[in-house]
Simulated assay, not measured.
Amino acid sequence: MTELITPQGNYPVSAILFDKDGTLLQFISLWGSWGECFLTQFNRQLEQRGLRFPMQHLASLLGTVHDAEGRITDYDRNGPLAMGTMSDLYAILSWQGYLLGLSWAEAVVLVDSCRQAADAMLERSRPVRPLSGLVPFLEECAAQGIPLAVVTADETAAAESHLRWMGIRQYFTAVIGTDQVERGKPFPDMALLACQRLGVSPAEAAVIGDTNGDMRMAKAAGAAVAIGIAGGMTAGQAAGGSPAVAESRVTATADADGNGQADAGGPADTAGNVQTANAQSVRSLLPDADCVVSSYAELGVMI
Rank of each mutant, 00 (worst) to 15 (best):
V108K: 08
D257V: 07
A262H: 07
Q144N: 11
D288Y: 01
P12N: 05
E123A: 15
Q180Y: 09
N78Q: 07
T40G: 15
S248A: 10
T251S: 10
A218V: 01
D74Q: 00
F187Q: 14
T2R: 05
G32A: 07
S248R: 10
Q280Y: 02
G70H: 05
Q180F: 10
H57L: 06
Y98N: 01
S60H: 02
L148Y: 07
A59R: 02
W95F: 08
V293H: 06
N259G: 07
V225E: 02
P147W: 02
P267G: 01
A264N: 10
D255E: 12
R164S: 15
I16V: 13
M166Y: 15
D154V: 08
A159W: 14
V65I: 03
S33V: 12
N273R: 12
T23Y: 04
T64D: 01
C114Q: 14
A268H: 09
T276P: 00
D21E: 13
A262W: 12
W104K: 01
R71V: 01
Q96Y: 03
A157S: 07
D88E: 08
V250F: 15
P202Y: 09
I16L: 11
I16S: 04
D255K: 13
L30T: 09
F42K: 13
D179F: 08
A221G: 07
A206C: 07
M217Q: 05
W104I: 03
K219A: 08
Q275S: 11
I146K: 04
N10L: 04
N259V: 06
T251C: 06
F27C: 03
V200F: 07
E140K: 14
I92T: 10
M217W: 01
D263A: 09
V250S: 06
M302Y: 05
G145W: 04
P186Q: 12
L25A: 11
A256D: 07
I92N: 09
P7L: 06
T270D: 01
C195V: 03
Y98D: 02
S87R: 11
G145M: 10
I92Q: 07
G231H: 05
G101M: 03
L4K: 03
A191G: 13
D119I: 13
I176M: 12
A289W: 04
G272R: 14
L30A: 10
K219S: 04
V135F: 08
T234M: 02
D74K: 00
A254W: 01
A226P: 00
A246C: 05
Q196L: 10
A117L: 14
G177S: 11
S60P: 00
L131Y: 04
W34L: 12
P130I: 14
L122G: 10
G167M: 15
L51D: 07
L102V: 04
A118E: 12
M233E: 06
V292I: 15
A120R: 14
S87A: 14
D76V: 00
F42M: 12
H66F: 03
R164K: 15
R77I: 10
D154M: 12
R197W: 08
A277D: 02
V13G: 08
L122T: 04
I303N: 02
